[in-house]
Design a binder for these strands. Structure first.
Lengths: 163, 163
DNA sequence: GTCAGTGCAAATAATTTGCAGTCTT
DNA sequence: AAGACTGCAAATTATTTGCACTGAC
């Protein structure tokens, strides 16, 4: 599985801690671990996947806490929740503007750089009164490996764990 | 609640039946009813909401069937499943290219015409091997009424029913 | 000490499935 | 008659919550 470089992850974590301190958010070991796992993994893991990755180093961490932490970090705008239709929630620590490439069959989700022709201006697209916070662009289709070996259905959360 | 005009709905249903016949898909009363309910309602209802709307005229229709029909129609490309992060599945009978305006707080979802500056070309945006089928653009934020009267959390599926 | 944060188990919400009956061809 | 489609109830999956405990200010 692809990972972000150690340096990049460290720098994200440092930035994360700064942001938290600025706002008086406690940086508990659990929060930092969840954030770090997310930052290290560009594959947009689910809560359960994050929990699985952390279990080795932090056996007592509960899945409920992972859900709580992710929910909280999202509400603070420190991570982003991404979705593909009919699938479980996935999360992303990358807050830079970018889009997502989503396989309809296996649910895999990759980052897609925002290319010039997809640069969409926020202003003026929503009716007055609506406060636009974020633009989600999902390019949905089928990935090469799914076309070769079509699965029976979208993988369940726990099936996702062991890819 | 806003509705599509009777004429428009009828024409969509006719077109729907033609498509089904072309492909040898049976048009059962349940399928037609579900499709019609979806076509009549531009608010992107959930499965449960569709079921609720139909219950008056078709008391025996089960929620499981609504789920099955929607799933099936989606797989046939006759309706579109749309999603907002962390929320339940919603459906859309409108297959014309358009975007969605989504309120992060109440989950309400409105159609947004694809304006020129948001027209995104399919070609060349995905890596080779990936077969692009559809582009989902979600403009996410908070709607005017939610900013006025913030709810405690995203409404649950059954709370959605009685708006 | 207070209060936020956590683990655990139980609860809830959304969606799917098994199976027996029904309708269509 | 064979297969597709449906209703009902039960099962499964994802996510949330109550409660008691622990640790930081």
């Amino acid at each position: 599985m692809k990972k972000r470089s150690q340096n990049e992850v460290d720098s994200w974590c440092t930035h994360f801690e700064e942001r938290c301190r600025e706002r008086g958010i406690r940086v508990t070991p659990q929060r930092l671990a969840v954030y770090r796992a997310l930052a290290a993994d560009p594959s947009h893991p689910t809560a359960e996947l994050v929990h699985g990755r952390l279990h080795a180093g932090m056996a007592s961490l509960s899945l409920a806490t992972v859900y709580r932490v992710l929910e909280f970090l999202e509400s603070e705008g420190l991570v982003r929740r991404v979705s593909s239709p009919g699938s479980v929630s996935r999360f992303d620590a990358n807050l830079a503007r970018h889009h997502h490439l989503v396989c309809r069959l296996c649910g895999r989700m990759e980052d897609l750089e925002e290319i010039a022709s997809m640069r969409v201006p926020f202003a003026g697209i929503a009716p007055r009164g609506f406060d636009v916070e974020q633009l989600d662009v999902h390019v949905v289709g089928t990935c090469a490996s799914c076309r070769r070996a079509p699965a029976k259905g979208r993988p369940t959360n726990s099936e996702l764990n062991y890819r």
